[in-house]
Computed example of a mutant assay.
Amino acid sequence: MAAELGSIDEARAMVAAAVDWVDEREATPGLIDLAIWVPDPTTGVTAGVLTVVLADVTPGPDPAGRWLHDIRRKPRLRGIRVLHHDTAPARVNAGPTVLELLTTADKRTGQITAQALWRIFPDDADGAIGLTVRTTELALTPALVADSELIAQGLEPLWAEA
Rank of each mutant, 00 (worst) to 15 (best):
residue 93 N to V: 13
residue 69 H to Q: 14
residue 40 D to V: 12
residue 92 V to C: 02
residue 88 A to W: 00
residue 94 A to H: 01
residue 64 A to K: 13
residue 83 L to K: 02
residue 70 D to K: 01
residue 50 L to I: 09
residue 96 P to I: 03
residue 62 D to E: 12
residue 42 T to R: 14
residue 45 V to P: 11
residue 47 A to D: 12
residue 88 A to F: 02
residue 89 P to C: 01
residue 87 T to I: 09
residue 34 L to K: 03
residue 44 G to S: 15
residue 52 V to H: 07
residue 87 T to N: 05
residue 53 V to A: 11
residue 34 L to T: 00
residue 33 D to N: 12
residue 95 G to F: 07
residue 71 I to V: 15
residue 29 P to W: 00
residue 78 R to C: 05
residue 31 L to N: 01
residue 74 K to H: 08
residue 47 A to R: 11
residue 52 V to F: 13
residue 50 L to W: 00
residue 65 G to Y: 04
residue 69 H to C: 09
residue 67 W to I: 11
residue 44 G to I: 06
residue 49 V to L: 12
residue 59 P to L: 08
residue 41 P to R: 14
residue 72 R to L: 12
residue 54 L to Q: 12
residue 58 T to F: 08
residue 81 R to S: 14
residue 35 A to Y: 01
residue 36 I to R: 00
residue 72 R to V: 13
residue 92 V to I: 09
residue 45 V to I: 15
residue 31 L to W: 00
residue 62 D to K: 08
residue 85 H to R: 02
residue 73 R to S: 14
residue 57 V to N: 06
residue 88 A to S: 13
residue 39 P to T: 07
residue 89 P to N: 00
residue 30 G to C: 00
residue 43 T to V: 07
residue 65 G to S: 06
residue 71 I to C: 05
residue 52 V to D: 06
residue 35 A to G: 14
residue 59 P to N: 09
residue 92 V to E: 03
residue 48 G to F: 09
residue 61 P to M: 09
residue 66 R to V: 05
residue 46 T to Q: 10
residue 70 D to P: 01
residue 81 R to M: 12
residue 35 A to W: 04
residue 38 V to K: 10
residue 82 V to Q: 03
residue 29 P to E: 06
residue 38 V to C: 14
residue 42 T to E: 12
residue 80 I to P: 04
residue 39 P to Q: 05
residue 68 L to R: 08
residue 44 G to C: 14
residue 33 D to Q: 12
residue 61 P to A: 15
residue 38 V to F: 10
residue 49 V to C: 04
residue 41 P to Q: 13
residue 43 T to E: 03
residue 32 I to R: 11
residue 51 T to C: 02
residue 61 P to V: 10
residue 81 R to Q: 13
residue 81 R to H: 11
residue 79 G to W: 01
residue 74 K to P: 10
residue 96 P to K: 03
residue 73 R to E: 10
residue 56 D to A: 13
residue 43 T to N: 05
residue 68 L to N: 03
residue 67 W to A: 14
residue 92 V to N: 05
residue 85 H to F: 01
residue 78 R to Y: 04
residue 80 I to S: 08
residue 82 V to W: 01
residue 53 V to I: 10
residue 69 H to V: 07
residue 51 T to L: 11
residue 91 R to G: 01
residue 76 R to V: 15
residue 34 L to Q: 00
residue 55 A to C: 06
residue 81 R to C: 09
residue 60 G to Y: 04
residue 83 L to P: 04
residue 87 T to V: 15
residue 43 T to Q: 02
residue 65 G to C: 02
residue 54 L to E: 12
residue 29 P to R: 03
residue 35 A to S: 14
residue 86 D to R: 10
residue 75 P to N: 03
residue 40 D to S: 13
residue 37 W to G: 10
residue 56 D to N: 11
residue 77 L to H: 01
residue 82 V to T: 07
residue 72 R to S: 14
residue 55 A to W: 05
residue 31 L to R: 01
residue 39 P to S: 05
residue 76 R to F: 11
residue 83 L to H: 02
residue 35 A to P: 05
residue 35 A to N: 07
residue 44 G to L: 07
residue 43 T to L: 02
residue 93 N to Y: 07
